[in-house]
Design a protein around this nucleic acid. Structure first.
Length: 505
RNA sequence: GCCCCCAUCGUCUAGCCAGGUCUAGGACACAGGCCUUUCAAGCCUGCGACACGGGUUCAAAUCCCGUUGGGGGCACCA
């Protein structure tokens, strides 16, 4: 049987990265098994519904390379208000893949459950339900529906009046969740609530919809976050009532934030688009996510895995039972590894939009500027953890700098007079040097160090601060060469003025 | 309150299922050093964990029980 798994986001905002990690597991498992990865939109909560989040979710998946084999088709997406539906419409043989388009089907199944004696109509008011719950809490009893309508005579609640349909959970016996990661989890039926399946607005609850859709869409493995475990017995009861095959459950742990709490919006950068905007590479994030809660084992000590390698090695049944904490510092390291592994051309193409967003480079990027940027790339490549780091590191190439303060200019062991001397002589040799290639610049400046009997760090330090305005910069000779003679001489002169004034005073 | 899940360095993990090869291995982070024009990168070294208590066994990180700690669920939300 072909493996079929799904990601079923609710369009109420952007999924956070912990959720995305679970998607990565789904996708990896599907690809590993030669199966199908299905995208389904669970939009049954009309109060929290945000249609604009649908394309954002899809864009995030696509950016990470998580392509889906079946999912909402063109027309479905259009009806959901997705503007560039043609970019994302996929369709498939088991649609519709948007739950609000499947209302009739849920009603049909709910009615079937009623007919089979596995569900019943209930017209209890929200006020009464709340009263019951309050009482239960006060008496420290399990909080659940008191089954007031469960044994009403047939027809006591008219199908025409507003009502919900509830699952009629057996009062005795046990239901076992066979989970491939957690093992067998046993629940007493007596502790399972008579869950609402069909809401009074005609929409299904998650519990009905997920069972119907997973069955209709022939899902074989349900890989989802483990906070769903407690509601799984209800789902199993429904499969049994309907005579349907029960899928294989794989409840994977939640991803924790650095405070040990499950990852949520308040943890800062948590959506895929935010990671993208902060300069993370999709291949690095993907690699990192795959290793969050899973490891190849067998003594394997490699950490950097390409997509194909991960597909080949991924083993769903080895996923950790315990939750993992999302570590930004390790992600940063891994991202740096991937940046260093990029070809210079590739890195250039990824950096240009970053410079553009920072307002340092016009869009489109002029050809001559591109040529200059091409020279900057090797200077910064091994210094970047995130693409966005390039802004601070290279800003001085694009705009004029404020002449640095005397304090910043002076290096260890040099006073203002000596520093000034360094700048004057540097300006002299750089005026004389026949061209401004990195090699020539290096040659004359090293000669200057020799002549003055100073240390490399002293001479190069003063020049660095004078020309970049910072103590930390890319390698000096390449930097000067790119800046060009004119700008370098001007900046040296401006710095001399600063020191000249301060040495007189 | 009731139900459920989880537990190896600060973090991600290997080892656990098929007890001995584990004075517990790797990675990130951190500290120190080397290299060096700054910062990185790279290399070397260091720091650092089987939550606790019982039991089973010749032998337990590995199996069992309990405790503690953390987390999740208990909606006409997903």
């Amino acid at each position: 049987m072909t493996v079929r798994v799904r990601f079923a986001p609710s369009p109420t905002g952007e999924p956070h990265i912990g959720n995305v990690r679970t998607v990565v597991f789904n996708w990896l498992f599907a690809r590993k098994m030669g199966g199908r990865f299905i995208l389904r939109i669970e939009d049954t909560d009309r109060t929290r519904y945000q249609p604009e989040s649908i394309p954002i979710i899809m864009e995030g998946l696509r950016w990470l390379g998580l392509d889906w084999d079946e999912g909402p088709g063109l027309e479905e997406l259009r009806r959901s208000g997705v503007e560039n539906a043609e970019a994302y419409g996929v369709g498939g043989p088991h649609g519709p893949y948007v739950q609000s388009e499947r209302l009739e089907r849920y009603r049909e199944v709910a009615e079937e459950l009623v007919e089979r004696g596995w569900a019943y109509r209930c017209n209890c008011s929200p006020e009464r339900l709340e009263r019951v719950r309050r009482m239960q809490r006060a008496r420290k009893l399990p909080v659940m529906y008191d089954r007031h309508c469960r044994d009403l005579p047939p027809g006591a609640v008219s199908p025409d009046e507003p009502h919900v349909i509830r699952l009629k959970v057996p009062l005795t016996g046990q239901t076992v969740v066979h989970d491939v990661i957690k093992g067998d989890v046993v629940y007493d039926n007596a502790g399972i609530d008579d869950q609402v399946l069909l809401k009074s607005d005609g929409f299904p609850t998650y519990h009905l919809a997920v069972v119907v859709d997973d069955h209709d869409m022939r899902i074989t493995h349900i890989i989802r976050a483990d906070h769903w475990i407690p509601s799984t017995p209800k789902h199993i009861l429904m499969y049994e009532a309907l005579g349907w095959d029960i899928p294989t459950y794989c409840h994977v742990p939640l991803v924790l934030g650095e405070d040990g709490k499950p990852l949520a919006k308040r943890h800062g950068a948590t959506s895929v688009t935010q990671f993208r905007d902060q300069g993370y590479l999709p291949e690095a994030l993907f690699n990192f996510l795959a290793l969050l809660g899973w490891a190849p084992g067998e003594g394997e000590e490699q950490e950097i895995f390409g997509r194909e390698e991960l597909i080949e090695r991924f083993d769903l049944f080895r996923v950790n039972r315990a939750p993992a904490t999302f570590s930004y510092s390790k992600l940063d390291w891994m991202n740096g590894v991937y940046i260093r592994g990029l070809s210079q051309d590739d890195l250039l193409e990824r950096l240009i939009p970053v410079w553009q967003r920072a307002g340092l480079v016009p869009d489109p990027c002029p050809e001559d500027m591109r040529a200059t940027l091409r020279r900057v790339v090797p200077l910064v490549q091994e210094r970047l953890k995130r693409l966005t780091d390039v802004v601070d590191l290279t800003e001085f190439f694009f705009s004029e700098i404020e002449p640095p303060s005397a304090v910043l200019l002076m290096q260890k062991g040099l006073d203002a007079g000596q520093s000034l001397e360094v700048l004057r002589r540097a300006r002299y040799v750089l005026t004389q040097v026949e061209d401004f290639s990195e090699e020539r610049v290096e040659g004359v400046l090293r000669g200057l160090v020799e002549e003055m009997g100073l240390k490399n760090r002293q001479v190069f330090g003063v020049i660095r601060v004078a020309t970049t305005g910072k103590k930390v910069s890319p390698p000096l000779f390449g930097t000067l060469s790119i800046l060009g003679r004119q700008r370098v001489l001007a900046r040296l002169e401006a710095a001399e003025a600063v020191l000249g004034v301060s040495s007189k005073s």
